[in-house]
Simulated scan of single mutants.
Amino acid sequence: MAVDSKPRLGGWLLVPLAWLTFSLLSMILVLIVYGGSLFGTALRGASFSPPSSALLQWGAFLLTTILMLSYSAWIAWIFCKRSKRLPRHYIIWLLLNVILAFKAFLFSPVEDSVVVNSLLIALLAASLFVPYFKRSQRVKNTFIAP
């Protein structure tokens, strides 16, 4: 029987994993809600009647969500595999979340309080997890697999 010498995922590492899981679930929910408009007959007519610029923005949003969902799923995979590539990619993922929240803050037609909350949560997550992933000895000891 082989003994795994790497430390198990636990402790404070469960918090970034929970944040990643929550983000994955919320992106799936967004895809279901916005993707449903492609298949609903009443919503399809309303979705494709706006000007082409709105349709272009909707398509860009959908593409961005699909790309972030794919990247997030891959990060969750390497998180569970305890890959040494994870700390760098998790930091990149956090910064992408901040950039996307800032973009939504600038260009979104959604109510301001919702967008501001989203931006503040992304900034808080990045400000807590980036230093943790850069300096924590637990992270350095856990993510050592090739």
Rank of each mutant, 00 (worst) to 15 (best):
T41C: 05
T21W: 00
F22T: 15
Y71K: 11
F39H: 07
M68Q: 14
Y34N: 14
T41M: 12
F79Y: 15
P146Y: 03
L124I: 05
V98T: 10
R44H: 13
Y132L: 01
L43G: 08
L13K: 00
Q57G: 13
W77V: 14
Q137V: 09
R88S: 13
T64D: 08
A2M: 12
L56W: 12
S47H: 09
Q57N: 14
T142P: 09
Y90H: 15
R138N: 08
L69W: 09
S108Q: 04
D4H: 02
P16D: 08
S53Y: 13
T21H: 01
A76Y: 04
K134R: 12
I144W: 03
M27I: 04
R135M: 06
K6Y: 11
R88N: 11
A60G: 07
G10A: 09
I75G: 00
S23K: 01
P51T: 13
A60L: 15
A126C: 04
G45N: 14
V30M: 05
P50R: 14
L67N: 02
R85D: 10
I78H: 00
T142G: 07
V33Q: 04
V30S: 10
T65W: 01
A42I: 11
L24V: 11
V15F: 11
I91Y: 08
R82N: 08
I32A: 03
W93N: 14
L128I: 05
S118R: 05
V33D: 03
F61C: 00
V33S: 02
W19R: 05
K134M: 08
K134T: 04
K84E: 08
I91D: 12
V114N: 04
I28E: 01
K134H: 04
L17G: 01
M27Y: 07
R82F: 03
M68W: 05
G11T: 06
P7W: 01
L128F: 03
N141L: 14
R88F: 11
F79W: 15
K134C: 05
Q137L: 08
L14M: 12
L43A: 13
L62F: 10
S47E: 10
A122E: 07
L43R: 12
R138K: 14
L120P: 01
V3A: 08
G11N: 06
V110S: 00
I78P: 01
Y71C: 07
A126G: 01
M1K: 12
F79L: 06
I99N: 05
L24C: 07
V33C: 00
W93K: 11
G10K: 06
S70H: 03
G10M: 02
L106K: 13
L123V: 04
A54W: 08
L38Q: 08
W19A: 15
F48I: 15
V30T: 12
W19L: 15
N141R: 15
I92G: 05
M1G: 07
T65A: 03
V33I: 11
R138G: 01
L56V: 13
A2Y: 13
A73C: 09
N117A: 09
F143A: 06
W58M: 11
R44E: 14
G11Y: 02
I28H: 00
F39N: 10
V115F: 00
V115K: 01
L128P: 00
V98L: 09
